[in-house]
Write a protein that binds this DNA or RNA. Structure first.
Lengths: 92, 92
DNA sequence: TCCTTATTTCGGTATTTAGCGAAATACAGA
DNA sequence: TCTGTATTTCGCTAAATACCGAAATAAGGA
């Protein structure tokens, strides 16, 4: 399915992917670094999961998110290269 | 700017890009092949132009749209390759 | 200038999305 | 079983988006 584009169209979601590029993180850890409510974030996670961009693993009460493939990184890199924008750490 | 993703997130807009991949087309020609009003289509054109994915050239009363770079094709191909989906002609 | 064709802009409605806080669910440990 | 922590689901509102038809704009030709 091609809602990969939709998933990538949100700055918040791209930020999440960028964070996960560095290391796997729990929902709580991600939440700590973003200025958005946890319930809102949960919605973003659903979109990313629907697009198959991330995987989850529950360990006790925490859920750890990981990039599903390195492809995400490649895509972001390709687009960055091609279209200029997006300085290193931050996205949009 | 990274609203390239936003531009690509619409099936209609991806369809337009696919059509332009084959050849340059006027707004009217594109309109003839899509089940969407001309005014609606005009809005999509604006999004594509804002994302710098297409260029326009006016010739008399008609306006011809072209893909801005072959990069669009590459991006679509990459994503198609990576994420399975999208049979040849049609873009869902 | 007037008429016709091509395209866009405008005003409107309906659907989708993002966001919130509160309540619900899922676990683990005492 | 009860409690605490982590995360999601559930209404809800506000903003963005898609869509339409009608009116406006742009250009060429009679």
């Amino acid at each position: 399915m091609a809602d990969v584009f939709h998933a990538l169209s949100s700055p918040v979601r791209r930020q999440i992917l960028t964070m996960l590029k560095a290391r796997d993180m729990t929902a709580g850890e991600i939440s700590d670094q973003l200025e958005v409510g946890k319930s809102t974030l949960s919605g973003h996670f659903n979109v990313l999961k629907a697009a198959d961009l991330v995987t989850t693993e529950r360990s006790g009460t925490t859920i750890t998110y990981s990039l599903n493939t390195s492809v995400v990184e490649e895509m972001l890199a390709l687009v960055a290269e091609v279209f200029g924008k997006d300085k290193k750490g931050s996205i949009k």
